[in-house]
């Protein structure tokens, strides 16, 4: 199932159960998959048109009245474009607004550099009280949304629209703010977020054949970090590589380094965007261009282990 299908199905259920939930779009309800909700809940869906700043403000106003708004746009326009609106009208004002940024990083594909957010996490991570969730697959997203809606503070949800791979099976149970240990291992801790969990999982299988035992952890919330799970693993392996679909400045790598530098200093290597802008390209081409492939991950792991 595509991420956006899971989004629409889950939101439909949540909106049926909770009359306070509202949807706000900025002329992207069709691409983002919320358009069918306008038929089912015409009173609680608002397409403000192409005005993201106003969308965030209107959401804050609805929240101040006790409603539970969810504002959506492509990731760069839901974050860097409206950073001050989120900082002041939402976070500083303590308003319960949920923000969904779709097609983060390379998943923007053919929309190219203007639409390719490698900085959305960095922009929002320094705002106090902000939670940042990078969705790993559709199954996880469907489980995460009800928990996020039950949490009465601002959460930024980062999700691709069209990808449909699976990382987690039917037995999987998501717990907000908890990281998931996907494979147990002793040699190195691989910390991945969002779509990079899927790539990292492929790398783990290759590394196993080379007798490298990898503990792969899906870091679901980049903020707050599940410090306990991460520290427990790193204290065991003493080696760390992070993998993210985001600039290595300000994202998962930064967050992990901030944690480990004070609590358990070890060398940390990064797979991620090395301070570059985006560009047009198909998913697989962009993985290669920004050195995010399973082979790049394997090499980074070996380098970190001096193998």
């Amino acid at each position: 199932m595509e991420f956006r299908q899971a989004l629409e199905k889950t939101l439909e259920k949540l909106m049926e159960e909770d009359q306070k939930i509202c949807i706000l779009d900025a002329d992207l309800s069709k691409p983002n998959g919320t358009a069918p909700l306008y038929q089912k809940f015409p009173d609680r869906c608002f397409d403000v048109g192409i005005q993201e700043a106003n969308m965030i403000g209107v959401a804050a106003g609805l929240a101040a009245y006790g409603f539970k708004p969810i504002a959506l746009s492509f990731a760069p326009f839901a974050t860097r474009r409206v950073c001050d609106q989120i900082a002041v009208s939402v976070s500083y004002a303590k308003q319960n607004v949920k923000i969904i940024g779709t097609d983060p990083g390379i998943t923007a594909e053919l929309n190219g550099g203007t639409h390719m957010s490698f900085e959305d996490i960095a922009v929002l991570r320094s705002i106090p009280d902000m939670t940042i969730y990078d969705a790993v697959d559709a199954n996880q997203l469907a489980q995460a949304l009800p928990q996020i809606m039950a949490y009465e503070k601002c959460v930024y949800i980062r999700m691709p629209r069209k990808l449909s791979y699976s990382v987690f099976d039917d037995q999987y149970q998501f717990k907000l703010f908890k990281a998931d240990v996907i494979t147990k291992g002793n040699d190195i801790t691989l910390l991945a977020s969002g779509i990079m969990v899927y790539e990292a999982l492929k790398a783990v299988q290759i590394l196993q054949e080379a007798n490298i035992s990898v503990e792969l952890i899906s870091v679901n919330t980049i903020k707050p970090l599940d410090e306990e799970t991460i520290l427990q693993s790193v204290k065991k392996t003493n080696h760390v590589v992070t993998c993210e679909n985001h600039n290595v400045i300000g994202g998962l790598y930064s967050a992990v380094c901030e944690l480990l530098s004070s609590k358990y200093p070890v060398k940390v290597d990064a797979i991620g965007i090395k301070d570059r802008f985006g560009q047009v390209g198909k998913y697989d081409d962009l993985l290669k261009e920004y050195q995010l492939t399973k082979d790049d991950i394997c090499q980074a792991v070996k380098n970190n282990l001096n193998k």
Partner: peptide, 29 residues
């Protein structure tokens, strides 16, 4: 969040009007 009787946090210009529009929509809902 600090002053009784204040209905919205404002100061970054241009933002309050959007919040007020959101409240007007909320009141209709």
């Amino acid at each position: 969040n600090k002053t009784p009787g204040i209905d919205m946090t404002t100061g970054s210009l241009g933002q309050g009007i959007s919040c007020a529009v959101g409240m007007a929509i909320a009141s209709k809902l």
